[in-house]
Amino acid sequence: MRYVAAALLAALGGGEPSAANIKSILSSVGIEADGEKVDQVVAELAGKNIEELIAEGTGKLGSMPAAGGAGAAAAPAAGGAAPAAAAAKEPEPEEEEEDDDMGFGLFD
């Protein structure tokens, strides 16, 4: 992902996503570039319009389901045992601690 990001930065900065530009951008933030991965990114982006690729990718992202919804969908599928277990474990009321700072806390 860092190689793609560096290539996009090079293109958005007015340059071309060449191997030298990608390596320069990555080295400026202390990342050693893997030559094979840089060459692969450059080969994939050769002759393509960056703006069109971004627009195409944005359209694909809009059709993908969000990862957060998967956990919520799985919980009801577990059956009736989960709600019963949750009802059986009601939280105990916490005892109030003595207020040693006389009501003036650093993070209140």
Rank of each mutant, 00 (worst) to 15 (best):
M1G: 10
M1N: 07
R2Q: 11
Y3T: 06
Y3K: 05
V4I: 13
A5K: 13
A5P: 01
A6S: 13
A7R: 08
L8P: 01
L8S: 04
L8C: 07
L8F: 08
L8W: 00
L8A: 11
L9S: 09
L9A: 13
A11L: 03
A11K: 10
A11G: 04
G13T: 02
G13M: 06
G14I: 01
G15W: 02
P17N: 05
P17R: 06
S18M: 08
A19E: 14
A20I: 12
A20M: 07
N21Y: 00
N21F: 01
N21I: 02
K23E: 15
K23D: 13
I25W: 01
I25T: 04
S27D: 13
S27P: 01
S27C: 03
S28M: 07
S28N: 07
V29M: 11
V29E: 09
G30Q: 02
G30A: 03
G30R: 00
I31D: 03
I31C: 02
I31H: 05
E32T: 10
E32G: 02
A33L: 02
D34S: 04
D34Y: 01
G35S: 13
G35A: 13
E36C: 01
K37M: 06
V38Y: 08
V38K: 10
D39S: 15
V42R: 04
V42W: 10
A43T: 09
A43V: 00
L45P: 11
L45Q: 12
A46C: 03
A46F: 01
A46P: 01
K48Q: 15
K48Y: 14
N49V: 05
N49I: 01
E51Q: 11
E52M: 07
L53V: 09
I54R: 11
A55P: 00
E56M: 05
E56W: 05
G59E: 13
G59V: 01
K60N: 08
K60R: 15
K60F: 07
L61E: 14
G62C: 04
S63T: 15
S63R: 12
S63Y: 02
M64T: 03
P65Q: 12
A66E: 07
A67C: 00
A67H: 03
G69E: 11
A70Y: 09
A70F: 10
G71T: 09
A72L: 12
A74P: 04
A75P: 03
P76G: 06
P76H: 07
A77Q: 11
G79F: 03
G79T: 00
G80H: 00
G80L: 05
A82S: 14
P83N: 08
P83S: 12
P83Q: 12
A84C: 05
A84Q: 12
A84Y: 02
A84M: 11
A85C: 05
A88C: 02
A88R: 14
K89D: 11
K89F: 01
K89M: 05
E90N: 04
P91E: 11
E92L: 07
P93M: 04
P93V: 09
P93F: 02
E94L: 15
E94I: 08
E95L: 06
E97T: 10
E97G: 12
D100W: 10
D101E: 14
D101K: 14
D101P: 03
G103M: 14
G103D: 06
F104Q: 10
F104I: 09
F104V: 13
L106V: 07
L106K: 14
D108L: 04
